[in-house]
Amino acid sequence: MVKYKMGPIRIKEKLYFKCLPYKKLDVFICTADPYREPPINVANTVLFVLAYDYSTEKFSIYVSDDRGSELTLFALAEAARFGVYCLPFCRENGVVERCPDAYFSSDNYFKNSQSHKIKLMYGNMITRINNVVEKGKVNEEYISYEDEQQAYTKYSSDGFTPHHHPSIIQVLLANNKDRDTKNIFMPNLVYISRQKSKTSPHHFKAIILKHAIKFAQSERSICAFELRPLAAHNELIGDQQIFRK
Rank of each mutant, 00 (worst) to 15 (best):
Y191E: 00
V171S: 05
Y152G: 01
V190E: 03
I129N: 04
E134V: 08
F204N: 15
P187Q: 08
N124K: 10
H165I: 07
S197R: 14
S197H: 13
S167I: 08
G159M: 12
T127D: 09
K196W: 03
K111G: 08
I207Q: 14
V132T: 05
H163E: 09
I169D: 06
P162H: 10
I129R: 01
T181N: 07
E146K: 07
D107N: 05
R194G: 05
Y152E: 02
M121V: 03
L172N: 00
T127V: 12
D147Y: 09
K135T: 07
K135G: 03
R194Y: 11
H164L: 07
E146R: 06
G136N: 15
I118N: 01
S113I: 10
I143P: 03
L120M: 12
K111L: 11
I118H: 02
N176E: 07
N188G: 09
R179A: 01
S115K: 05
Y191H: 00
N131S: 13
P187L: 03
N183A: 13
T153C: 08
F204W: 12
G123N: 10
M186P: 00
A206V: 12
K182A: 04
E140Q: 13
F204R: 14
G123F: 00
P166I: 06
L172H: 07
K117F: 11
S156I: 01
P162K: 04
Y145Q: 10
H165Y: 08
Q149I: 06
T153F: 04
D107M: 04
F185K: 07
G159P: 08
I126S: 07
V133W: 02
H202Y: 12
K154E: 09
I184N: 15
V133Y: 06
I129Q: 02
Y109M: 05
K119F: 06
K119Y: 10
V190K: 02
A174L: 04
H163Q: 13
S144L: 10
K111D: 12
E146T: 05
K205Y: 13
K182P: 01
F204G: 13
H164Q: 13
S115E: 10
L120H: 03
E140D: 15
Q170S: 09
P166V: 03
Y122S: 07
I192G: 01
P162F: 01
Y155P: 04
E146S: 03
K117M: 14
L173P: 01
N188S: 10
I184K: 15
N112Y: 08
V138H: 05
T199A: 15
A151Y: 04
I129V: 15
D158R: 11
S193A: 15
Y155G: 01
N183E: 14
V133Q: 00
M186Q: 08
